[in-house]
Design a protein around this nucleic acid. Sequence first.
DNA 1: CCTTTTCCTACTAAAATCATAGGAATTATA
DNA 2: TATAATTCCTATGATTTTAGTAGGAAAAGG
Lengths: 138, 138
Amino acid sequence: MIVSAKGRYALRVMIALAARGGEDPVPLKELARQEEIPYKFLETIMTELVKADLAESARGKNGGYRLTRSPRECTAADVLRVTETSLTAAACTGEDRECPRADTCPTLPMWRALDEAVDELLTHYTLSELCKSAETDR
Amino acid sequence: MIVSAKGRYALRVMIALAARGGEDPVPLKELARQEEIPYKFLETIMTELVKADLAESARGKNGGYRLTRSPRECTAADVLRVTETSLTAAACTGEDRECPRADTCPTLPMWRALDEAVDELLTHYTLSELCKSAETDR
DNA sequence: CCTTTTCCTACTAAAATCATAGGAATTATA
DNA sequence: TATAATTCCTATGATTTTAGTAGGAAAAGG
């Protein structure tokens, strides 16, 4: 499975926030209920999204979360890069882990192509588009 | 990480077999050494590839493994479909696990698009092409 | 019969994934 | 200023997946 539950939850929540339009912060409780995501798990997810500056929080009564950017300027790739431990196809394609076989590895070009294809596709989906398809599809 | 070590090993071995040209079966011992893959782990991998009819085995002395098909008719997708528990983006996109939210899920179309993109790319790489790029690249 | 090989059945260790628990800090508002 | 609603922080636990190991049975060639 390419995308973890965490990533799917994160995307759903971001889309839900986008659908709300934006002014008032939405409390976690409400998001968790609406999206059927375990409350405490979602808490850890929101923390990551806030740290990554994709969402911002307001503490205390009437607090909650909202997006930092316009839904048109936030892509699925942005979100998933935060939640997924790795979006790259193979260990060898990151900057960090260069495997010793890299020079002669026959599969490396394919992994790179795969990375690129995935990245490009995910970058094409913005939150606002994802909102729209939820309305119009089916 | 999209592709497991098992899948990367499997591809490397299939490419190695393709590179040999084909008549004589290649013993596991030799493949494991050449490709630097743990012997016993590779054994389990080969079992799966044989069951999936991508490779065939010859037991006993002078035995080993060889490809069942021409390298031109075996793609990376064929190999990875055997080794990866799931190549689909999200749990909801398989035939088996239809999540209850599928009807209104805003992300489902994207997961489907992602699945298609990955599949198409991996289907374009045949073993024979992967062999070639190992020779000509760099 | 001996050697080389695959085949079969189990087991295990480590890592990642998916959460849960409990309480402290902050804020609006009555 | 008390209270309720909220996020923030730190830690822990359960389950699943991944990656690999162990030991020997079965087959085949010479």
